[in-house]
Design a protein around this nucleic acid. Structure first.
Length: 413
RNA sequence: GGAGGGAUCGCAUAGUGGUCUAGUGCGGCCGCCUGCUAAGCGGUUACCCUGGGAAACCGGGGUCGUGGGUUCAAAUCCCACUCCCUCCGCCA
C-alpha cells in the first residue's frame, strides 16, 4: 500500500508509475474520496470538541444541546467510516511504485539478463525431459497424483521423494549456516489479514485456496506468513536486519494459467519452496536485495546448474515489488529456462499494509521497515533441472555432489 | 465441542457512569545529589490522525482486546466478535 499522503502530493508521479507497469489503478477516485474525507474529519473534530466542552461540567450540562450534538456526531461518524472503508479498498488495489533504477518495458521480453553462470552441458545423446525420466525410473507417478487429487498433482516416490527432501535440507542448511538466516517453520494456513498484509488479498483471491468455514487461507508462498511474523509490531532499535528462511509447501489454484505447462511437474497446485525473507532499514534494502540474489545464486552454483539472472522491467514486476530479479535455470530436456527464484524488494509497501515498523534509535519515532523476499529456491523446478542436467545415456541420474550425503546414493537408478 | 475466568500506557497492577486530562510500582531515559554499593532526590516515559511553524515546539481529535449500542457524559453499563487461561470431552 502506498502512503495516501504521498499519493496526494505526488499524483502525477504515481500515475506515471502505474502506466509504466502497464496496469491501471483508481487514482482519481482516491483523490476525490480523500478530499471529501478530510473535510468531514475537520467538521467531526469540531463537533467532538464541542461535546467534550459541553459534558465537562455536570451541573451545567444542557441535555438538549448534548443530544443534538450526539446525533450530528453519529451521522458524521458513519459517513467518515464509510468513506474510510471505500478509500481503503481502493488503496489496496494500487500497486507499488517501481524503483527509479529499473528499466521501463512493455512485457517480459524486455527483462535484461544481468548475469550468466555455468555452461549448458553438451550431450552425446538426446536429453530426455524430466517427465520421461521420472516415469521410467519410477520416481514420479503422475497417474496416481491425478487419481488422488486431480490434474496438476503428482506423487514423488522412492529416491524422487528422497532427492526432493535432500534439496530442501541442503538449502536450509546453506542459508542458515553460511548466509545468516534464521530458520522458521510457519503455519501453512493463515488468517485473511495476513493475506492482505502481504498483498495477496484482495486482488488475487482467484489464485488462493481457502477454507470457508474458518476463513483460513492456504499459503501460496512462505512469504505470506513471514511478512506477518512482525505484523503490528514495532521492532526494537538495533534488531534490524532480520533474516528468515522457511521451508513450506505452497498452494496455488493456477486458474490464470489454465492449460499452460500441463506437462511434468513444472507448475502444480502444490509445490515445495525454501523462501528467504528480510526486514531491513529503508536505506539498506537495495543492498540487501543484491545479497539475497547472491544467496539464491549460490544454491545454483553449489548444485552445479547453469543459470542466468534477469532484472525485471516495469511491466513484469510483481504487484508489491519495487525491484526484482528472476533466476532461471537451464533445463536441457524440455529445452527451456525455468524460473527457480524471484527476489524482490517490496520497500515499505507490505510494511504499511501489515503495519510493521521499527525504532531507529531508542527515542526516535517508529518508521516502516522495508521487506524483501526471494525463493531460495523453488523445489520442483530445481528437481527438474537436476534430473535433466545430470541424466546419463542409460536413463539414470547422477546425484549432485553436495546432495549425496543427504540422499545416501550417488546415482538415482 | 461444553462450562467457567480474563484482556488497562514496555512489564505488573488500581480503577464498576462525571477533576480518568487513566493512578501506583518496576523497568527505561534525563538531571541533581552523595567519598562507596542493584543507594537517595526530582523529572520524564505509548501510538495514530490533524492544524500552525524552517525547527525546537504549540494546539485539536482518537485509542483502556476489536466492532457496535445506551447516555448530556463510558475504561466503567448492554450486545456481538477475537485472543488467552483453567476444567471436561475428543484427538495425531
Amino acid at each position: 500500500m502506498l502512503d495516501l499522503k504521498f499519493i496526494r502530493e505526488n499524483i502525477e508521479l504515481v500515475r506515471q508509475a502505474v502506466a509504466d507497469r502497464g496496469t491501471d489503478a483508481p487514482l482519481d477516485e482516491i483523490i476525490s474520496l480523500d478530499t471529501a474525507r478530510r473535510r468531514q474529519i475537520l467538521e467531526l473534530e469540531d463537533l467532538r470538541h464541542a461535546r467534550k466542552e459541553a459534558a465537562r461540567d455536570r451541573e451545567q450540562a444542557d441535555k438538549e444541546v448534548g443530544r443534538d450534538l450526539r446525533v450530528q456526531i453519529k451521522t458524521l461518524e458513519d459517513e467518515v467510516r464509510s468513506l474510510d472503508s471505500q478509500l481503503q479498498d481502493l488503496l489496496l488495489q494500487v500497486p507499488n511504485l517501481p524503483h527509479p533504477s529499473i528499466p521501463v518495458g512493455k512485457d517480459e521480453s524486455e527483462n535484461p539478463v544481468v548475469r550468466m553462470w555455468g555452461e549448458a552441458r553438451k550431450f552425446d545423446f538426446t536429453p530426455a525431459p524430466h517427465w520421461k525420466l521420472g516415469e521410467t525410473l519410477g520416481i514420479i507417478d503422475f497417474e496416481r497424483g491425478v487419481k488422488l487429487s486431480g490434474s496438476r498433482f503428482y506423487v514423488l516416490k522412492g529416491l524422487g521423494a528422497r532427492l526432493q527432501r535432500a534439496i530442501i535440507s541442503f538449502m536450509l542448511e546453506l542459508h542458515t549456516t553460511k548466509h545468516g538466516y534464521q530458520e522458521i517453520y510457519p503455519p501453512f494456513m493463515v488468517k485473511r489479514e495476513c493475506m492482505v498484509g502481504s498483498g495477496n488479498l484482495p486482488k488475487f483471491a482467484d489464485n488462493l485456496y481457502h477454507d470457508e468455514e474458518d476463513d483460513l487461507w492456504f499459503v501460496p508462498t512462505a512469504e505470506v506468513p513471514l511478512t506477518n511474523m512482525h505484523r503490528d509490531e514495532i521492532i526494537m532499535p538495533g534488531s534490524l536486519p532480520i533474516y528468515y528462511v522457511a521451508y513450506t509447501a505452497c498452494f496455488r489454484r493456477e486458474k490464470m494459467s489454465a492449460g499452460k505447462d500441463t506437462r511434468g511437474i513444472k507448475r502444480g497446485h502444490q509445490f515445495d519452496k525454501v523462501e528467504l525473507y528480510k526486514f531491513t532499514e529503508p536505506d539498506k534494502s537495495n543492498d540487501e536485495l543484491e545479497k539475497m540474489v547472491a544467496n539464491a545464486e549460490h544454491v545454483c552454483q553449489k548444485l552445479g546448474l547453469p543459470y542466468h539472472t534477469k532484472e525485471l522491467c516495469t511491466a513484469d514486476l510483481g504487484f508489491a515489488s519495487t525491484k526484482s530479479y528472476d533466476i532461471e535455470m537451464w533445463a536441457p530436456g524440455c529445452g527451456e529456462w525455468l524460473e527457480v527464484s524471484s527476489c524482490s524488494n517490496c520497500g515499505d509497501f507490505q510494511a504499511r499494509r501489515a503495519n510493521i515498523r521499527y525504532r531507529p534509535t531508542p527515542d526516535a519515532k517508529p518508521r516502516f521497515v522495508h521487506t524483501l523476499n526471494g525463493s531460495g529456491l523453488a523445489l520442483p523446478r530445481v528437481l527438474i533441472a537436476i534430473m535433466e542436467n545430470y541424466q546419463q545415456a542409460d536413463g539414470t541420474i547422477l546425484v549432485p555432489e553436495v546432495l549425496q550425503g543427504y540422499v545416501g546414493e550417488k546415482v538415482v537408478r
